[in-house]
Write a protein that binds this DNA or RNA. Structure first.
Length: 816
RNA sequence: GGGCGAGUGGCGGAACCGGUAUACGCGGCGGACUUAAAAUCCGCUGGCCAUAACAGGCCUUGUGGGUUCGAGUCCCACCUCGCCCACCA
């Protein structure tokens, strides 16, 4: 009898699947499609990680399940290969990123192939391939043409270590996402942006329809940060200036007793009285010397200084002092606020510290804090007695009529800053001409290929290493033919990843980025599996898809790229810490495979370890359990084969315990896979196998056995594809188990032939009764009352109520 | 401060609609096989009380209350932990 040895069967089937091309996907209008893909990886030098394996096992199990059920499945992989690690490695070692990236991809690919993922490898793409980034550049040109890519001089986040600007999405608590110990700085630079804010409302409205985890949806809503309110003009006393503020609470205008401008606000110098000049100048200097990390500290005590000028509250007509303070941010709204200390906690802290008047203008609803809530208006002239929300609309209308206010919606989200002063990215296809300005590279000249250079270090002044590639930079202007220079910034890697899932649908097209017919067939992605990029990548992709829909390159109904987002949890080391080389706690998945557990046991374990969405710590002993299970599956089949070969296949049967166990397992595994409950699906497989062994031990492995073993192979296939395929072949079935259909269950067999009911007495389980399956409510009640133990406990009393729950229990209620 | 989520055996977790809490696995204990070990197989494994044994009783899903014949599940309050956002006016 053959022993279960994964090393004997796994590489063999991997080769055969590859040769037979059974996972190649083709558009087929007659078959329903399922598009399943994982967020494509960055091919790092440290190789595949158990976290990757979890993510790809989930993806592949979903893909295989749908393929077996007859869906036309597209699942594939690509490489998100531009980015800093490869460039930093080049700076350190001199190895060109082109080379190290190719090497890393080759190694990732070998490792993934060893895990037996059912990718259509003919669709593999790499973002650093000029054949790919040609189209990323083409999309840039289309955005430019439609006014959605533009250049702007602005104050931007800058990482002093990376020597590049960062997108807002790449700054975490004022620090670079790659260098958590280095505070990011701010620099004034001319940068390229994508106008994502144009789609702010659409992106926000679309969130409601997504089948995504609530948490991710909330994060996107938060990020967009829409707030409705009003802009109100305050005139400055004895001056022609007005100060504009943004507020979400115009109903508290009567309570505005001061104003605050951000230290960077352009009106500050003009509004500073001569007597206050020195104070104000030194305050601004102090504020600017603080890092942004410090300025964002919420627990800090409020600071500020008066400008010495006064504004007129347009509601009360009173003169109120104008201050500058760094708790007001230049980035948001107008960079100036009206201070309402009675109803805003921050303004209250400020007024309390500096002795400014505090005027209450509404009584909060009972039990509510006075800050930020609703209530009944007072001390507000003609508006007294109104509800705050009512006054909010009224006063904006009234002030608008006077021309001193207007409705205004603000967003927290900024335009997407995409230029990077780094070498290893897709060049921005723009030529700067002294005469014609920024001129797009003609589409026919794409791609703008990255030149090979020898020194990758950015010069730190805001120009990438590309600036030194003189022969590449100097070109003629496509518009006037005069001397001009190429843009030396490259695009943020997120640009490359915002459309790759479309390229998967048509990866070799050299005429178009994708054929809309193909994209419309496959899109949207039905299951998108990943554990990162909750805002960034997923928001950028939603933005680009809307633009593509506007251009007619994808159907409007498919503009949401991701139908169902499968956001998996993180795997920590055994000690609960993040795995890292320096801590020496990294688990190498391929090592486990080579140790003899095999890819099947590893994949199965990563699905079994916990629900997919939960973070888990790696249990080093766990994989032995799934290996043991596969071994039991193997032995069960081998024992069956040794008997079968002697006696020949036996006939089928009907309502026997083996068929019951099979039906039960098929239903449970199917249900669990439909709701992505992989851990319980694996548990159901284990129960099925345990039950088959029990039935065999009691001599029940007769008529229905062949079907039971056959379906075992088909049920195991999405989780442990190699052993399933091997057993399928050994059992003598034709073709691949992975396209052999999904087993069906017989609903009639699910009910057991005896009924076991619990009997509760005042809510406590006191006895168990066994009845024929045909027993009805009356039989159950009689049996419960006649049960010896229940009789004893009742002691002659009659239950006041009897509740019968079919198939579950009889509940007796006795009153004392 | 705001938002989201989670607290169940020694551990990962199950219980999908309110219906016999602790499925499945890891670990542990005992046994079979073996010169021995590994592997494999079989049995036991929430706590306390009780018993020669069988039986039996009580407690238990973070804490306290509530609704219900019945609550891990629903409601209220609280505690703890995790993640995300955060002087956003």
């Amino acid at each position: 009898m053959r022993r279960y040895n994964p090393a004997d069967i796994e590489p063999k089937w991997q080769r055969q699947w590859d040769d037979a091309k059974i996972y190649q996907a083709t558009e087929d209008a007659d078959r329903p499609k399922t598009y399943v893909t994982a967020m494509f990886p960055y091919p790092s030098g440290s190789g595949l990680h158990v976290g990757h394996v979890r993510n790809y096992s989930i993806t592949d199990t979903i893909a295989r399940f749908h393929r077996q059920r007859g869906q036309n499945v597209l699942t594939t992989i690509g490489w998100d290969a531009f980015g800093l690690p490869a460039e930093n490695y080049a700076i350190k070692t001199g190895v060109p990123p082109q080379q190290s990236t190719a090497r890393n991809i080759a190694s990732f690919k070998t490792q993934l192939q060893r895990l037996g993922m059912s990718y259509d490898w003919s669709r593999e793409i790499t973002t650093t391939d000029p054949k790919y980034y040609r189209w990323t550049q083409w999309i840039f040109l289309q955005l430019f043409k439609h006014g959605l890519a533009y250049q702007k001089e602005s104050l931007q986040w800058w990482c002093p270590v990376c020597k590049t600007v960062l997108a807002n999405e790449q700054v975490i608590n004022g620090r670079c996402w790659r260098h958590e110990d280095t505070p990011a700085e701010k620099k004034w630079l001319k940068q390229w942006f994508f106008r994502i804010t144009k789609y702010a409302d659409q992106l926000l409205d679309g969130i409601g329809d997504l089948e995504w985890p609530a948490k991710i949806k909330a994060m996107q809503r938060n990020w967009i940060g829409k707030s409705k309110g009003a802009e109100i003009d305050f005139t400055v006393a004895d001056s022609s200036e007005t100060i504009q503020v943004f507020t979400t609470r115009p109903d508290t205008l009567y309570g505005a007793t001061f104003m605050v401008l951000a230290p960077e606000h352009p009106q500050v110098p003009r509004l500073t009285a001569a007597a206050n000049k020195a104070e104000v100048a030194s305050y601004i200097k102090a504020a600017q010397s603080k890092s942004d990390v410090e300025r964002m500290e919420t627990e800090r005590e409020k600071t500020g200084t008066p400008l010495g000028s006064y504004a007129i509250n347009p509601a009360t007509g009173q003169k109120i002092p104008v201050w500058t303070a760094d708790y007001v941010l230049m980035d948001y709204g107008t960079g100036a606020i009206m201070g309402v200390p009675a109803h805003d906690e921050r303004d209250n802290q400020f007024a309390t510290k500096f002795g400014l008047p505090i005027a209450r203008v509404y009584d909060p609803v009972k039990g509510d804090s006075p800050y930020g809530g609703e209530g009944k208006v007072k001390n507000s002239g003609e508006y007294n007695g109104m509800a705050t929300h009512q006054m909010r609309e009224r006063i904006v209308a009234d002030l608008s009529a006077r021309g001193v206010a207007r409705e205004k919606t603000n967003y927290r989200m900024r335009d997407w800053l995409i230029s990077r002063q780094r070498y290893w990215g897709a060049p921005i296809p723009i030529i700067h001409c002294p005469k014609d300005g920024a001129v797009p590279v003609p589409e026919a000249d794409l791609p703008v290929t990255l030149p090979e250079i020898s020194d990758y270090l950015p010069d730190g002044s805001g120009t990438s290493a590309l600036g030194r590639a003189k022969g590449w930079v100097s070109v003629t202007c496509p518009s006037c033919g005069g001397p001009a220079k190429r843009e030396t910034d490259t695009m943020d890697g997120y640009a490359c990843s915002s459309w790759y899932y479309l390229r998967y649908t048509d990866p070799h097209n050299n005429r178009l980025a994708w054929d809309p017919a193909k994209a419309n067939y496959w899109m949207p992605i039905d299951y998108y599996c990943g554990g990162d990029h909750a805002v960034s990548h997923l928001l950028y992709s939603r933005f680009w898809m809307r633009f593509f829909a506007d251009q007619g390159w994808i159907e409007r109904t498919r503009q949401e790229p991701v139908h169902r987002l499968v956001f998996n949890g993180y795997i920590y080391a055994h000690d609960g810490q993040k795995m890292s080389k320096s801590k020496g706690n990294v688990v190498d998945p391929l090592e486990l495979v080579e140790q003899g557990y095999g890819a099947d046991a590893l994949r199965l374990y990563e699905l079994f370890i916990a629900p997919y969405e939960l973070d888990v710590a790696w249990d080093p002993g766990g994989i032995a359990g799934t290996y043991r299970f596969l071994n039991r599956v193997w032995m069960l089949a081998q024992e069956y084969l040794s008997v079968k070969n002697k006696n020949g296949p036996a006939a089928k049967s009907g309502a026997d315990p083996v068929s019951r166990a099979r039906s039960k397992a098929v239903k449970k595994v199917t249900d669990d896979l439909e709701r992505l409950s992989f851990n319980t699906a694996v548990a159901a497989l284990m129960e099925y196998v345990n039950e088959l062994y029990r039935l065999k031990a009691s001599g029940m492995d007769g008529q229905a056995w062949p079907e039971a073993v056959k379906d075992l192979a088909r049920l195991v296939a999405p989780f442990a594809p190699h052993i399933a395929e091997e057993l399928w072949q050994q059992l003598g079935y034709e073709g691949s188990v992975h396209v052999a259909g999904w087993p069906a269950w017989d609903e009639n067999l699910l009910a057991a032939n005896t009924l076991v009911l619990a009997v509760q007495l005042n809510g406590r389980v006191r006895a168990e009764i066994t009845l024929p399956a045909t027993a009805g409510e009356a039989d159950a009640k009689t049996a419960a009352l006649n049960n010896a133990k229940i009789k004893r406990l009742l002691g002659g009393k009659q239950p006041a109520r009897i509740i019968y729950v079919p198939g579950r229990l009889v509940s007796l209620v006795v009153k004392d």
